[in-house]
Structure formats: C-alpha cells, structure tokens
C-alpha cells in the first residue's frame, strides 16, 4: 500500500470530515434530512475507508474488533432501555412524555435523541463488524487479477 500516496493523503484529510459529518447528520436529524440510520452508515464508511487505504491491522488498532461487536449490541440496548426507562417512570413503553412530564414536546426531543443514538450505534457497529468479517478472510485472487 506504499505506492498510493495521493489516496493516502486525501483519505487522511477526509476521514475527519466524514466523522464530523456523521455526527452532524446524527444530531441534526430532527431539523434536516438525516438521523440514526444515515449517520451510522456514514460513521461506518469512515472506518471502512481507513481500513481499505491503510489496511485492516491499522483500523483495528483504532477501532478494535471486540469494541465494534459490543457496540452493535449496545445500540439495541440503548433503544430498548429508553423504552424501559419510560416504563419505570410510570409511562408506556417508548412513551417519551415520561422524560419531561410538564412539557411533553421536550420529552419527545430527549426520547428521539436517545433512540436515534441507539439506532446510529447499532448500524455503525453492524456495518463495521460485517466489513471486518469480510476483510479478515484470506482473498482468493491476487491484486493483479482484477
């Protein structure tokens, strides 16, 4: 991978911007197109780009495999946990009014934020771990065969 100088330089510049854009899409999803599903994919793409350009070993030092696998499960737990928390506060499952009884639409804001975060974490975790699973196998053909 030594020879792809332009690719490596441009990727280094881009990865930070992609991660930042992912966060923007995640937390601005209430106001503009976007949300957890898109943000999860964009964050995953940043790590996949890093893995493609610098090799699987490098990206797994930044974002180890055990952490990715755990994140995929944590996202679902955050989502379901938001619903269960509402139940403990005396409301229905996934009724976000529980988080701000005096001002229901504020509660909705908090609930949507938490739920979208859960979706984003799961999607990013699953996409990156699927990429690790595919990239971790020995390839059947050499680079010249393409």
């Amino acid at each position: 991978m030594r020879h792809h100088l332009i690719l490596r330089t441009v990727s280094k510049l881009l990865i930070g911007a992609i991660l930042l854009f992912g966060l923007y899409v995640q937390f601005h999803g209430d106001f503009s197109p976007g949300g957890g599903f898109q943000a999860g994919v964009i964050v995953a793409v940043a790590f996949i780009l890093h893995g493609i350009v610098f090799g699987l070993g490098m990206v797994q030092r930044v974002f180890p495999r055990w952490l990715v696998h755990k994140l995929a499960a944590v996202g679902v737990l955050v989502y379901a946990g938001t619903g269960v928390l509402g139940m403990f506060l005396g409301y229905d499952f996934l009724d976000y009014g529980a988080f701000s009884p005096d001002h229901p639409s504020h509660g909705q804001h908090w609930g949507i934020l938490a739920v979208e975060l859960g979706v984003g974490i799961t999607v990013a975790g699953v996409m990156v771990s699927v990429y690790y699973a595919f990239a971790g196998r020995p390839p059947q053909m050499s680079d010249e065969d393409w």
Partner: peptide, 13 residues
C-alpha cells in the same frame, strides 16, 4: 434500505 443491506451482507456471507 438499511435492513436490506444487512440481509444482503448475510447473503454474501
């Protein structure tokens, strides 16, 4: 769409 890509990944695996 996102569920679709997850199931596509399963098929490819």
């Amino acid at each position: 769409i996102v569920v679709g890509v997850a199931t596509t990944a399963l098929a490819l695996a």
